[in-house]
């Protein structure tokens, strides 16, 4: 299996990145599934990454514990800002969460003694293995897929369709929204903590506006109808640049064109395209 060893040696980081990016896509799927446009995921990722990296770097905390705390702290922060913030809707919610993200980034940049400021944290031990990422991914997917068919999932879908009607039906809309937001933050934090431990180095600029938009793109591109959509979005957005490497200078251009084409021909997300295949498998006729 020399070929496999060589493959893993070359592409392990890429595969791990696919894993953490899918976690990020799942984290934004949670809020999108409730019809909430929040883009604080990059900031939660930063909090998770810095928390876990500082713990393993400076206190020698066991990796598993660092991961857990890396997911918990962002969840806690989400709980605090979630209550006032989630009253907002649409682009105003997006802006508030974007502004929050920017504040987090600047605070990390300025807390030089702790975070190293712009110089970042380097020499982070390589502790994340393929198993860690696979385990986190399977766990997250399992939970989210269970939600999708349960009371929680139906409540979220109802909120997305019509918030006021759902409230009138006696559901605690605010609690469901907060739940999605906090769980999303935990997933993003976990992704950040895992990512920090296979890239040796983190710096505040990785978690800015561009990352926030990229996470959103993964969520929307894949489709917000199912957790599988988020998985597809994360995989496509991470692998596409690598698959296009042979195009050299044209790589970013083609990358952009492919994104546009996907969206135009599958505006509901890539997952939506697989609907026909799924229908055929379950024996029902495909509907136009």
């Amino acid at each position: 299996m020399e070929w496999l060893d060589n493959f893993w040696a070359t592409y392990s980081t890429l595969l791990l990145s696919v894993g953490t990016n899918v976690l990020l896509a799942l984290s934004i799927y949670l809020t999108l599934a409730c019809g909430l446009l929040t883009v604080a995921n990059a900031a939660f990722m930063a909090i998770g990454a810095y928390t876990a990296a500082l713990l393993t770097l400076q206190t020698g905390t066991p990796f598993l514990l660092a991961l857990i705390l890396g997911a918990l702290l962002p969840a806690l922060v989400a709980m605090l800002i979630g209550r006032p913030t989630l009253r907002l809707s649409g682009v105003y919610l997006a802006m508030a969460t974007l502004a929050f993200g920017e504040v987090v980034r600047i605070l990390i940049l300025n807390a030089e003694d702790l975070t190293g400021g712009a110089l970042g944290l380097n020499g982070i031990a390589q502790l994340t293995t393929g198993f860690d990422v696979a385990f986190a991914l399977i766990g997250a997917l399992y939970v989210l897929l269970r939600f999708a068919g349960s009371r929680i999932g139906r409540a979220m879908a109802a909120i997305r369709q019509d918030e006021i009607a759902t409230e009138l039906m006696g559901l605690n809309v605010r609690a469901y929204k907060l739940f999605a937001f906090v769980l999303g933050a935990a997933l993003a934090g976990l992704a950040g903590a895992l990512n920090a431990h296979f890239t040796f180095f983190i710096s505040p600029n990785e978690y800015g506006f561009e990352r926030a938009v990229e996470i959103l793109a993964m969520g929307v591109l894949g489709g917000t109808g199912s957790p599988w959509g988020a998985v597809l979005g994360g995989v496509v957005i991470t692998l596409l640049p690598e698959l296009l490497r042979g195009f050299g200078h044209y790589r970013p251009l083609i990358n952009g064109v492919v994104l546009i084409v996907i969206i135009i021909y599958s505006p509901q997300g890539i997952w939506d395209l697989t609907r026909f295949i799924r229908r055929r498998h379950s024996g029902k006729p495909a509907v136009n």
């Binding site: 938009v213 793109a217 251009l253 952009g256 064109v257 135009i264 509901q268």
Partner: peptide, 14 residues
């Protein structure tokens, strides 16, 4: 409503 926004990300890259 989010689809056009994501498409504009692609356009910005192009």
């Amino acid at each position: 409503h989010l689809a056009p926004m994501i498409a504009t990300i692609g356009l910005a890259i192009c």
